[in-house]
Lab assay of single mutants.
Amino acid sequence: MAAGGDHGSPDSYRSPLASRYASPEMCFVFSDRYKFRTWRQLWLWLAEAEQTLGLPITDEQIQEMKSNLENIDFKMAAEEEKRLRHDVMAHVHTFGHCCPKAAGIIHLGATSCYVGDNTDLIILRNALDLLLPKLARVISRLADFAKERASLPTLGFTHFQPAQLTTVGKRCCLWIQDLCMDLQNLKRVRDDLRFRGVKGTTGTQASFLQLFEGDDHKVEQLDKMVTEKAGFKRAFIITGQTYTRKVDIEVLSVLASLGASVHKICTDIRLLANLKEMEEPFEKQQIGSSAMPYKRNPMRSERCCSLARHLMTLVMDPLQTASVQWFERTLDDSANRRICLAEAFLTADTILNTLQNISEGLVVYPKVIERRIRQELPFMATENIIMAMVKAGGSRQDCHEKIRVLSQQAASVVKQEGGDNDLIERIQVDAYFSPIHSQLDHLLDPSSFTGRASQQVQRFLEEEVYPLLKPYESVMKVKAELCL
């Protein structure tokens, strides 16, 4: 049975990233139509530049190519590739079939990587351009969430054990800070992308030097003109047959890092959902379990974690691919890159769409948070109580021993009897502590235990987050809708 299948058929496997999760716009960027249309555009740009620099290419040939950029006979191309065992030459023939007058000058002087690699770089750039505003929107939604809850005390956790208090907004800023680093890295790697350009079979530009009869300047002009037509500021000066596969490492490393950030955020949300302090959106008709109707599973956060793990592992592909590119190139890269580049971007696209949807509907339960604080705060307040007693004339050592005994009794009630923490009640009825009984409410005010959390939130948002989001103001209103 021949390899390949009808990918629109229910009898043929289709990647869930495309069929179930990723956005239509990201799927289109990695589609065959987008790819092969870009090949034709690159052939047109090459012909236009070659004509401008004096090669015998007519206006009629150029116009014929322009008129057929979208006229792609995919069936013919597939048949040609089956016959020739070469995808680029299959599309040269297919393009030439609908451009008979231009057929002889299509791909003039070029090698397969002229269309293959340059198209990949265009796709990487455009895919990054799709991700950047999506990530900015996630940051914006979380920034709104953090600002609104900047002063809401909550129990902090280290080692997932109760620690000092923080605020809900401050905790959210930990998430935002990681995503801001990801946004900066995505922008950097996007701006650092260079075009492969017009380089020939081993990167020496020998074929173009021959076409222009040894004119170095025209060869350099050709490279520059096509690079500018493709919208790049610069091209690699040095290439082998391909652009260095280190570029793929750079791009997928940034995406993998984004995956790590999203995994951490969504894990926190899942843990908070278990504590009943916070939940992701839950639709009115949504079913959490087929057997347990009360369940409210954090399905979206779980999906993000599941896909983020996949995204983090994909960076190993370009690392290994770059390491086995012998001399000017081997074909070890080809099949692998067809999979890992598309999957990385479709996965990143999915987790950003999902995280935006989550961040637009996060639900906080202040009463649950308050109750958990009441359970733990008495123990945390013991040092403040000791200091207040010393100020009232008591002995630190005597007070410490009193607190120690009462704390152990209260802990026994919590752990052995399943009761509430009654340390404060014990202190309130103990005559030894009568000098500070009137101060206990103040000493137990949760806001006095959150330090500068709310001020940190305000400063972080104003100095770091809002300036970073400013270039994306025009796209901030787009909502994230999930079908599944």
Score class of each variant (00 low, 15 high):
3 A>G: 10
4 G>I: 15
10 P>E: 15
12 S>K: 14
18 A>K: 13
20 R>M: 00
22 A>W: 08
24 P>Y: 12
30 F>W: 13
33 R>C: 15
35 K>V: 08
37 R>T: 11
44 L>A: 10
45 W>H: 13
50 E>G: 09
53 L>A: 11
60 E>L: 13
67 S>Y: 13
72 I>T: 08
76 M>Y: 11
77 A>P: 10
80 E>A: 15
81 E>V: 00
83 R>K: 10
86 H>E: 00
90 A>Q: 02
91 H>D: 03
92 V>A: 14
94 T>H: 12
99 C>M: 05
99 C>I: 10
107 H>P: 00
110 A>P: 09
120 D>L: 08
124 L>Q: 09
126 N>L: 06
132 L>A: 14
136 A>G: 14
141 R>Y: 15
141 R>N: 11
142 L>F: 12
144 D>S: 15
154 T>K: 02
159 H>W: 01
162 P>D: 01
164 Q>I: 11
165 L>K: 02
169 G>S: 04
169 G>R: 01
170 K>I: 00
172 C>G: 11
175 W>N: 04
175 W>A: 05
176 I>Y: 03
176 I>Q: 05
177 Q>C: 13
188 R>P: 00
194 R>G: 10
207 S>D: 01
217 H>G: 12
229 K>L: 09
232 F>M: 11
237 I>T: 09
238 I>V: 13
252 L>F: 09
256 A>C: 07
256 A>L: 02
262 V>M: 09
270 R>M: 01
273 A>R: 01
277 E>W: 04
277 E>P: 01
278 M>I: 14
283 E>V: 08
284 K>W: 14
285 Q>A: 09
285 Q>R: 14
287 I>T: 14
289 S>G: 01
289 S>L: 01
290 S>A: 05
302 E>P: 01
303 R>F: 00
312 M>H: 05
316 M>Y: 05
318 P>E: 02
329 R>K: 05
343 E>D: 15
343 E>R: 06
344 A>P: 07
355 L>K: 04
355 L>M: 14
363 V>A: 04
369 I>K: 02
381 A>L: 11
381 A>P: 02
384 N>F: 05
390 V>Q: 11
393 G>M: 05
401 E>Q: 14
405 V>C: 14
410 A>R: 04
419 G>L: 11
420 D>S: 06
432 Y>I: 06
433 F>E: 03
439 Q>V: 12
445 D>A: 13
449 F>L: 04
452 R>P: 04
453 A>C: 12
462 E>W: 13
469 L>A: 09
470 K>L: 13
471 P>G: 15
475 V>F: 11
475 V>G: 15
475 V>A: 15
477 K>D: 08
477 K>H: 09
482 L>T: 15
483 C>K: 10
